[in-house]
Write a protein that binds this DNA or RNA. Structure first.
Lengths: 252, 252
DNA sequence: TTCGTGCTATTGTTAGGACAAATGCACCGG
DNA sequence: CCGGTGCATTTGTCCTAACAATAGCACGAA
């Protein structure tokens, strides 16, 4: 027995079969939106993959790939012999490879950035190891405070390899760092992150407007381009009452 | 032009073509081990997908799927027109859907668990919301201290729905919670996690043998089974000098 | 009743083929 | 010398097809 269709036909009426956007991607994004907006209710069972394919005029592998995208995101669950269902749990978007800047904008806050310092310094041992450079190489060191709606949320320290030595304070106050790097043709493919906690140091409590010695949430990140070259190292700390990291884990 | 083979033929000599383990999975696990052990060096370029398939007697989709697994894990990078390369960055295993217990064992530590309390309590508003039960439903509340090699590392609080009301202290000291749940046929498919930081409360500093009011790394988790039913809620806190969360992010 | 057996529905795996798109390189013309 | 054109290489997308494995259900036997 086939399940009744759970979405209106209009949802997939405007598929671009010739454009540059892959079909499976068009399907999965439309499906995701329908699920997040509640058009397809939580717990609903989808039709089987072949029936969906017939209804949309697509092959099973294409439909399957679209569904797989959402399974990976934790929005759908598949069970052999049973079918595919919309997950009933609320699913949070994962920690993504975006800047804090973009995160905040998406949630509807107004981010602002104050550049505390922008200097060229010789790489110490740690920085050299992270960026895979010789000790003493001139790197760019940025220290910023990021606020949302006027409240300081985080202190961001970034170390950049020599090729970014001409970045200006104006650039940094206007756009996020990742945006600047992208506009120079540097695409970040992979990042290693470590999330931890510690007390405030030095002037951090003043910058974040919290008590001296209170806890901070920290995130250290080294980012690499497609060739595996380290293009950025970051040492960030966040006010734990204003910021946390959310993830959804999916077992396979 | 085809690239020279980068792995010894023995690597894939013992593929089980009839067994229950999928071929793509056998390939990807062997490849992953070879990369992590350095048998295939960092930065090496793989043969093209079709050539690999011919050498192994497999079709391109199967080879492609095996490679995709490692791309998702951040071990390989693909570029159209170029080929597939081993990532040069060190890649950490992601935060997985495993218990802390299993994490520690894998890294070679000796975990031990002390059960502080195991009680049945009525669900308060927060717990009821997390486990999707009526307020006042009797749930099981566990509080444990997890140590590695004799040093306390974390305080674990878990809330379980009524069906687990018969869990005993002996169970919990012998096996990890997730292991117990699995043995009862409850498989966790999805979990939502929030990682943050705060000060110690109450007796936490004593249990973890740190200064009163010092920072803690916290992780709150709600786990769901395949049907989207909440089967566990956890409120954990870790000594930040002994524990941190590592992830690798891959952009797509 | 209860247990097992077999049927049906559905996803999981594998194969083989075709064309599209991007990249790097050699080559050629200005 | 420089820039563009075209080609070879390789991954990206999409299709058709077949069979395996699993879960649930109906049915029948003990």
């Amino acid at each position: 027995m086939s399940t009744e269709p759970v979405w209106p036909d209009e949802l997939f009426a405007d598929l671009e079969r010739t454009g540059p956007v892959p079909l499976y991607f068009q399907i999965s994004t439309r499906l995701e939106r329908a699920i997040r907006e509640g058009v397809i209710p939580s717990g609903a069972r989808l039709e089987n993959e072949i029936a969906i394919g017939e209804r949309l005029g697509l092959s099973r592998p294409t439909v399957r790939r679209a569904i797989q995208e959402l399974v990976d995101k934790g929005l759908l669950v598949r069970r052999r012999g049973i079918g595919t269902q919309v997950v009933q749990a609320r699913v949070s978007r994962p920690v993504e490879l975006t800047s804090l800047n973009e995160d905040l904008t998406r949630v509807g806050h107004h981010p602002a950035t104050r550049v505390l310092s922008l200097e060229r310094v010789p790489a110490d041992e740690e920085a050299a190891a992270q960026l895979n450079l010789a000790i003493g190489t001139e790197i760019t060191r940025i220290r910023r405070v990021r606020s949302a709606d006027g409240t300081p949320m985080a202190i961001l320290i970034n170390l950049l390899p020599p090729e970014f030595s001409d970045i200006t304070v104006e650039d940094l106050e206007r756009r996020g760092l990742y945006e600047i790097m992208r506009s120079r043709g540097v695409t970040i493919k992979i990042a290693n992150q470590t999330i931890g906690a510690r007390r405030t140091h030095d002037d951090e409590h003043e910058l974040l407007d919290i008590a001296k010695g209170s806890p901070l949430l920290t995130m250290d990140r080294v980012a690499f381009d497609h060739g595996g070259r380290a293009v950025e190292a970051g040492h960030h700390c966040y006010r734990p009452d204003l910021y946390s990291f959310e993830t959804t884990l999916v077992s396979r």
